[in-house]
Nucleic acid binder design. Structure first.
Lengths: 203, 203
DNA sequence: TATTAGTTTAACAATATTGTTAAACATTTG
DNA sequence: CAAATGTTTAACAATATTGTTAAACTAATA
């Protein structure tokens, strides 16, 4: 399927996703999006009233993608170690395919927390958090793991999985790594991260 | 010392630092900076020709601050465990005082890698990297620690120290933490992080 | 095929943002 | 104190960016 086969709305959404996700709201220009989509600015306004409205669609979509990999895994009946390992692998796989996602979400959330909070209402992230806390506390109560504040554990997982993608440009320069070197490193890190997280709770 | 005592250039720099660091280049308005400094826009241009030139000053300054806490510690004659522990503590102390710094650097670096690379030339970060790699490799050769790719170790440290500050707004909302709760958590994390990093290299 | 609804464009309008200038004001110093 | 230098302001100009409109075009269909 070529670009030409897609209808205009889809072309606009694809272009907007690309431009907004890379540039952020403030730096993105309606004209960049129009050019990326191969149309003119007026058409953007015809399909999506305003820059803000178009952005809202992309933000909601990105927010959804960002959290989708998290939620399903906790509910399985695997043991905790396996769950953590799957979570880390799934998260990094997702991030390897959507490398600009976390910086986008974080930047926009930082500059407009109210919007982020509003969008979070549509995504089962609170539910995930509750489920996660219960899981950790009950495992600790059963004596299967060391007692730990689940928030620390979550912060560990999120930091180790997400940060490399957020800091990638700086990191690549400091270490003299190129894109494929970076991706190889992240493949290796799947197990390093999972091991490190599991160390945190192992008795 | 009150605001009134400071000279105009200093007031402008303080205001610009605040606005640029919070908003980033694209979202920052010269008028925001002027208001924050208690002057009008024309004065900004009188002191610093253009928005870009003012921004360059702030970016260079922020970049310098960001890396200053790193560099000195490695050169001491403490053992590696102590060095890592000091590094983590110093880094988190710095970040607690400059919470917007990492997202600022990372966002701007992401959207303009050439500028970041140019600025990096003025900061001894490459030198830090070389020193760090040598230190880890020589300790491993001596058999004091497990062999590990120093890049993985550095990524671990950076991820665990920096990410919480970058993702703070999202994180606070997901976990229902307020500002002081967050800062307490980071105090606790100093040792959790140091322990976790040291686990990675302990035989 | 003539009508309709939907799509696309080019030209235009409105607004937001940055940058400039000339004149008023203040401060220093010969 | 008066000339010179530096500072500040208000008004203006230029540019960049978003948003609107009317008319041309296209495709479906009565």
């Amino acid at each position: 399927m070529t670009e030409i086969d897609k209808n205009t709305e889809q072309k606009i959404l694809d272009a907007a996703r690309k431009v907004f996700t890379r540039q952020g709201f403030a730096a993105a220009r309606m004209d960049d999006i129009a050019q990326e989509a191969g149309i003119n600015r007026a058409l953007l306004h015809y399909y999506f009233r305003s820059k803000q409205k178009l952005f809202d669609v992309i933000f909601a979509e990105n927010m959804g993608n960002f959290y989708s990999s998290f939620v399903s895994i906790l509910g399985s009946d695997a043991d905790l170690e396996t769950k953590i390992r799957s979570l880390v692998h799934a998260e990094i796989d997702m991030l390897l395919k959507n490398q600009d996602l976390p910086l986008f979400i974080i930047s926009e959330a930082s500059r407009n927390p109210e919007m982020m909070i509003a969008q979070m209402a549509h995504v089962p992230v609170r539910q995930f958090m509750i489920q996660f806390v219960q899981l950790i506390n009950s495992e600790a109560a059963k004596g299967n793991i060391k007692a730990i504040n689940p928030i620390h554990l979550l912060m560990h997982i999120m930091s180790l999985c997400i940060f490399p993608f957020v800091g990638r440009p700086v990191f690549m320069h400091v270490t003299g790594t190129d894109m494929s070197g970076f991706e190889n490193l992240m493949e290796e890190r799947k197990n390093i991260i999972a091991d490190s997280v599991i160390q945190l709770i192992k008795k």
